[in-house]
Design a protein around this nucleic acid. Structure first.
Lengths: 273, 273
DNA sequence: AGTCTTTTTAACAAAATGATTATATGTTAA
DNA sequence: TTAACATATAATCATTTTGTTAAAAAGACT
């Protein structure tokens, strides 16, 4: 059949001609937390953490998953993670970045569901203890050897781990294919999503300013360095770190006190103007 | 209602409970082409190029779009671009990378359609002139000033351009929001997809080896440098370029000849072993 | 033989990074 | 009051990596 115009074509178009599927979004909410260090001074150390939700319905009942949900039929894709984030944490105006879209035929046992994942970076100080019931913060430790990544999760009450193998793709690339080889506690393919998020964050922290989304307004260079260190999973040398970071921050005249050691200046993030 | 097991839940699950939508994939196929230079020697220059398809059906009849199509209900998302690529170019085993998923409610006038975009990198020498009818290669030039990007496309017969404004996001990031401000000839939101692909490629060429997917087996350093230059949109200094690239390639004992100037050694890509 | 063009190597300056060491300073405990 | 403590901050020097300019090399063309 021939149509004379775009309007005419659209009028005759039957949306049920193609098979349909559902779309969800999953969000990795990254933040850092302070952990008391077991020494006689009241020092604390930064930890890397993400928010997980315990499922109380099928499928994957009693397992953990990333906060998320279905994208409404009249909702822009990128508005869905904003809505989910508001529901889970009551936070708005948060750094969000699309990560990857997962679409294996059988990734959800219910039906064909595509999922677009996002990562969010938040400063926990802005939280008013209003995270939803069933959600909890897990500290995160990463270990990698022989292309097998083990990720340890701990929310204080429960702790578990999962393993993912990184398989180098054949084509001329340094990208990997990821395969879950051990996972008892995470629903769906969320183990993959978490690793993808971690790797994206690790990369971007080096060439962008996104860390500052996880920092409070005033921070010390020591704290900032610790955040870099937990995310990158390695120690940095002080002078090298300072050389790089001093271009991005402004020293204020405020200082810390009562820390049991020499006080340090507080810095703020310097927007590039 | 309470279920006793995952099996029981799934048996009772009604997939029509949620509204459904359709999923497509769009692929930016990047390559480089040789263009005769108008001088008295038979020298040639590399150009950056992408494959576009002229639409002969509604919607957007007679406009150009990226190769793509619907993802089958029983087809893994990542298998769809492989299939499309095979159809359009008859090529297999090609470097493919997922870019971004577009999901604005009204991005397709027919109905709610989500599209996951990919980029593919190919070596044109592997093409056997079998690209599908309606498809043609467009040389691509990029110009950016005052955060407005103009992209010029030319396939020898037709040429046009489009403009996109880059708006800095408010949050602590160096990422932009993109807004089409001038576009007469490209269907859907494909102008955005093309720019996203260009920026991804520009970034990754610096810290990965993906360029070699666009190179023939044997190449000169001059050719390789030209490819870097057309993609990055700037001249590189020879010694600096060589220092970086010599770690990635192996010099063979083959040489070029008949080029009207000093011959050069041919190199091959050195896989990291 | 001389000119053209591009390749390839050389050489040096400037900048960025790596690593070590020294000094500073409030807190805590004796 | 003082010494041990824990971290902050600065200074120093060696090393590596980049930026820049320039020169030499070699086949094709006239």
């Amino acid at each position: 059949m021939e149509y004379k115009s775009e309007e005419e074509f659209l009028k005759a178009y039957n949306p049920n001609e193609f098979e349909r599927l559902s779309l969800t979004t999953d969000i990795i909410i990254f933040s850092v937390s302070d952990e008391q260090v077991a020494n006689y001074r009241k020092t604390s150390k930064k930890r890397f953490s993400i928010l997980l939700v315990k499922r109380n319905t099928y499928p994957f009942k009693d397992k953990y998953c990333l906060p998320g949900g279905f994208v409404g039929i009249n909702e822009n894709l990128e508005d869905a993670p904003i809505r989910v984030l508001k529901n889970e944490t009551n936070l708005q105006n948060i750094y969000l970045e699309q990560l990857y879209t997962y679409g294996d035929v059988h990734r959800d046992p219910r039906m064909r569901i595509i999922s677009t994942s996002y990562m969010a970076l938040i400063d926990k100080n802005k939280l008013n203890e209003k995270i939803s019931k069933d959600a909890s913060w897990f500290n995160l430790d990463i270990e990698e050897k022989n292309n097998i990544v083990t990720i340890y999760l701990d929310n204080g009450k429960e702790h578990f781990s999962f393993k993912i193998k990184k398989i180098l793709k054949e084509l001329t690339t340094d990208r990997y294919k990821y395969e879950i080889i051990e996972n008892e506690h995470l629903a769906f393919d969320h183990a993959l999503v978490i690793l993808a998020g971690i790797e994206r964050l690790k990369n971007k922290i080096e060439y962008t300013d996104i860390v500052f989304n996880m920092m409070p307004k005033y921070f010390t260079l020591g704290e900032l360095q610790q955040v870099y260190e937990v995310i990158l999973g390695k120690k940095l040398l002080d002078p090298a770190f300072r050389r790089i970071i001093e271009k991005k921050v402004l020293k204020t005249d405020k200082m810390t006190s009562g820390e049991g050691h020499r006080p340090s200046y507080l810095y703020i993030y310097k927007n590039k103007e």
